[in-house]
Structures are given as C-alpha cells and as structure tokens.
Amino acid sequence: MSTLILRTVAPFLTALMLLFSVFVLLRGHNEPGGGFIGGLIAASAFAVHGIANGVAAVRRALRFHPMAVSAFGLVLACLAGLLSVVFAVPFMTGLWIEPTVLGVTVPLSSVMLFDTGVYLVVVGAITSVALALEERDGD
C-alpha cells in the first residue's frame, strides 16, 4: 500500500485533514460538524499517515500517547462541566463570554471547551486502536 506517491503525499494530506477537522469542530455549533465528526476525521488522518509512513512516524509526530490525548480530552470535558460550580449554576450549564479581539466579536463558551474535549477523546481512542492494529509485531 505504501507506494512512493502515497508516502510523499500522506504528510500533506494528514495536515490538510487535521486542519479540516479543526474547522469542522469549530463550525459545529451553527452548521453541520462538531467534536465527534471532527475527531473521526482527525483519527482517519492519523490512520492514513500510519498506513503510508509506518506507526513509528505517527507516534513521533503525536509526541503524546494517543490514549493520554483521549484522557486529557475527558478531563477537559469534565472541567467544562465543572466551570459552572464557580457561577453557582447546575453542572454542565453552558456559559458564554463574547470578548472583542481586534474589533471582531469572538464568542467563547464552556460548550466549545466541552466539544473540544469530545474531539480529543474520539481522536485519542480511535487513533490508539488503529495504531495498535497497524503495528506489526516487529515494530
């Protein structure tokens, strides 16, 4: 499967897919998309990279173990829920702030933080399974 063309193109393809996955994650609140789909896209990006250039390359590029990424995502999602404690509202209440940066209003919310957590959990869990399966016994 790892032909020269695929090997050469794969890093660019992976980068593009990752960028796209973040785009999908961020637009999710108003248009089709969201953390779950974004996570799936990113996971397939890593899978492509792994098929083309080997698991070791992906692990190097990721720096962290994908399961750690997943766990971090879960922590992030919990924290997003727990933020509400500070404002004395029930767990998981959506909180919004809309600061203006360079004249542009940027809506930020605990919901977005939560969605990012979902994204990371999905990326981490699926990538670690896919990588473990791709790994040959010799690796």
Binding site: G28, H29, G35, V111
Partner: peptide, 18 residues
Amino acid sequence: HGANVVNVIIVDFRGTDT
C-alpha cells in the same frame, strides 16, 4: 446560542449524556 440543533443537543441540552 447555536443554530445546529443536532450539535446543540449533543454538547448542551444533553451534555451530561455525551
């Protein structure tokens, strides 16, 4: 504050399920 109902349900209305 979201136009995508599906996503709003997942991350906000039924966030604890998610």
